[in-house]
């Protein structure tokens, strides 16, 4: 029994030695395999949610994303909707948004990019406030707080 334990211990140690030797040369392919695991995708709270609708105007495009209410075990009562403007964006952005596609506008938003000022006028009672309004590498993005 003692001998078996010694052989098992040494074999495990050598296996670990091999693991470390192949770890760095194989890092890219190991990482690629790990990235394909079912849980290796960013939560919508971080990505901003899937793009649900695109409004294309002359010079710029507005992406309206799916509202995000994701919680741990169940959906939360509060969440947000993310809007992204890209292309050649005017200094003042003025848009009225129907985020839930019920045919009715839910809020107006006015963004003064030069002065970093954002004004939100909720129309629907489920629209709350501006959580984030920021320049991005592609243009401008805002997150508007929602309740269910």
């Amino acid at each position: 029994m003692k001998k078996v334990k010694i052989i098992a211990g040494i074999s495990w140690a050598f296996l670990c030695l091999i693991l470390i030797i192949i770890l760095f040369p194989g890092l890219n392919s190991f990482s690629l395999s790990v990235s394909k695991l079912p849980f290796m995708k960013l939560n919508p709270r971080y990505t901003g949610g899937e793009i649900a609708n695109q409004v294309i105007s002359k010079s710029c495009t507005l992406d309206i994303r799916k509202p995000v209410f994701n919680g741990f075990l169940k959906e939360r009562n509060s969440g947000f909707v993310q809007l992204d403007w890209h292309g050649t964006i005017p200094d003042i952005i003025k848009d009225s948004i129907d985020y839930d596609y019920d045919g009715k506008k839910d809020f107006y938003v006015l963004i003064d990019r030069k002065n970093s000022k954002t004004v939100l006028e909720p129309i629907d009672r489920k629209v709350k406030d501006v959580l984030i309004s920021t320049p991005t590498s592609y243009g401008w993005a805002i997150r508007v707080g929602l309740i269910k």
């Binding site: 849980f39 995708k41 960013l42 939560n43 971080y46 994701n70 741990f72």
Partner: peptide, 9 residues
Amino acid sequence: AFTKSIIFP
């Protein structure tokens, strides 16, 4: 484990 997603930006 529960939401099959990563909570990190």
